[in-house]
Design a protein around this nucleic acid. Sequence first.
DNA 1: AAAAGCCCCTGGACGC
DNA 2: TGCGTCCAGGGGCTTT
Length: 301
Amino acid sequence: MPELPEVETVRRGLEPVMAGVRFARVEQRRADLRFPFPERFAERLEGRKVLRLDRRAKYLLAEIEGGECLLMHLGMSGRFTIEPPRRVRRAASAETAPRGAFLHDTGLGAAHDHVVFHMSNGATVTYNDPRRFGFMDLFAEAERESHKLLAGLGVEPLGNHLNAEYLSGRAHGRRADLKAFLLDQRIIAGLGNIYVCEALHRAGLSPRRRAGTLADRQGRPAERCAPLIAEIRRVLEDAIQAGGSTLRDWRHADGALGYFQHAFRVYDRAGETCPRPGCRGTIRRFVQAGRASFACRLCQH
DNA sequence: AAAAGCCCCTGGACGC
DNA sequence: TGCGTCCAGGGGCTTT
C-alpha cells in the first residue's frame, strides 16, 4: 500500500503503540525479505525503547535508544497490523488460542507474517508482506543522513525545499517523460504511480510531456512548476486526510481502511469519462517505463 | 549522467 | 475445478 500518504498513515497508526515504548521481544521469522536482515536484528532491538518514529519518503525510521536507527520499507505489499495491549478478548477466540497468543483479527492470516514486535506495553506489531519487496535495516543513528538508501533521496513533496526554482532546475535538460521524472525518488521522494497520475491530471499536464519542458522559460520557473507543485501537495494532503488509499482490501495498521481510492480521478479508471468539469475526454490507460499510466488526452497537455 | 530493462515475489482476476 | 496469463501501490542493479 505504500506511497507517501499510505506510509504516513501507517506511521501515525504505529506511533501511539511504539513511540516511547520498549521492544520486549522481537520475532524475526525468516532470514531475509528483499534483503537479508542485519546481523543480530532481534537482539539489538530487544529491551530498547523506541524514541521516535519518523517518515522519510516511503521509509519509516525509528530512532532506537542506544543510538541505532530502525529502517522499514513496505515495498509493494508490506503492511503492519497492531494487536492492542491485551485486555478483554472475545471468549470464543481466547478458548481456541494458545495461552498467551496474540490473536489476528484482521482476516489476513499469518502466512506472511515475517516480523513480530512484542512491545512492553503489551501491544503486538506484526509486519506482513506476501511479495517480500519490503525490507528492514538497522544502523547507527549517526549514519541516518549518509545511509546508502537515504542519502540520494530528493526533497519531501510536502516540505519547504520543494519549490518552483528547485523543480525547474532539476527538470532542465531532461528528456525523460514527466511521469518518469516525477517517479524518480532522487528528485521528489515519496511519490508513486497513483499520486503522480493523479497530480498530473489535476495539473492538466500530460505524463508523456518531456520533463525538460517544465524548466525555466525566460527566468519564469514558476510558470509551469508552481501549479504542478500545488497539485502534488493537494493530492497528497487530501489522501493523508483520507487515511491513504486501500487497494485490494488491504488494511492500515489500526485495521481501518483508507478511503482515498474513491477519490481517484484517473488511476485505474480507464474508459471512464474525464472528471474535469466541462471536459468530454475519456481516461486512457497506457504504459510508461513499464508502469501503467492513466490520463485524459483532451485536458492534459 | 541519464535513461531503459530486468528482476525480486505472491496472489487475485480473468479467460478457456 | 483447474490451469495459464497478465497485472499489481517499489526500487535496486545492470546495461546502454
